[in-house]
């Protein structure tokens, strides 16, 4: 059963308030707070901004400016699986361009977009420190090495079956 939007929203704001309360007294607390929120929700909702601003005695624009500066923070809810493809030089030397083209084609989305079924979000990333075994892809905290189009398709299949299993529970 899906939870109602209102229920989700109030859950989120409790989570956001908890993150703020736990971290706001640290020096330079803003990034740790944003990380904690994104860790739980997979993005930083617009509603978090005034709450953080108030707690840290900043303007909404200040907080918004920080959130938008860093590529890591998302402004909208991503798909179930966020797939990050490394675009940096080492991965390019081993065919990352063909890989990203394939990923876009097969998922029918561009970077920063989510598939219609809400399963996959595609993001670029610039180096995962796995350059000895390029090309690299990251999903959640897993890094995948020596990627090619075939392995990418297998990965998609595995991720897909993982989420359908969860739904079936």
């Amino acid at each position: 059963m899906c939870k109602s939007v209102a229920e989700n929203d109030s859950q989120n704001s409790q989570l956001i308030l908890d993150a703020i309360a736990a971290l706001k007294d640290q020096p330079g607390a803003l990034l740790p707070i944003l990380h904690k929120i994104q860790n739980s929700l997979n993005f930083v909702p617009e509603t978090a901004i005034p709450l953080i601003a108030k707690a840290l005695n900043l303007s909404n624009a200040d907080v918004h400016g920080v959130v938008s500066f860093y590529h890591h923070f998302r402004h909208t809810k991503p798909g179930v699986h966020v797939i990050q493809i490394c675009r940096a030089e080492s991965c390019q030397s081993m065919g990352a361009k063909a890989l990203e083209q394939h990923a876009r084609q097969i998922l029918e989305i561009d970077y920063h977009q989510t598939t219609d079924d809400g399963q996959f979000t595609l993001e670029p990333v610039y180096c995962l420190g796995n350059c000895a075994c390029s090309p690299s892809v990251r999903v959640a905290d897993e890094i995948y090495s020596d990627m090619n189009t075939q392995k990418f398709d297998e990965l998609l299949k595995n991720l897909h079956s993982r989420s359908t299993k969860v739904e079936a529970l």
Binding site: P27, L30, L31, H35, L56, Y70, H71, F73, V125
Partner: peptide, 22 residues
């Protein structure tokens, strides 16, 4: 402290700004 996906934050003064929450 964890960074947030900005290459420029490797530059030392940018890194300090980031640590300060900016």
């Amino acid at each position: 402290r964890m960074g947030a996906g900005a290459y420029i934050c490797g530059e030392e003064t940018s890194l300090l700004e980031s640590l300060e929450g900016k």
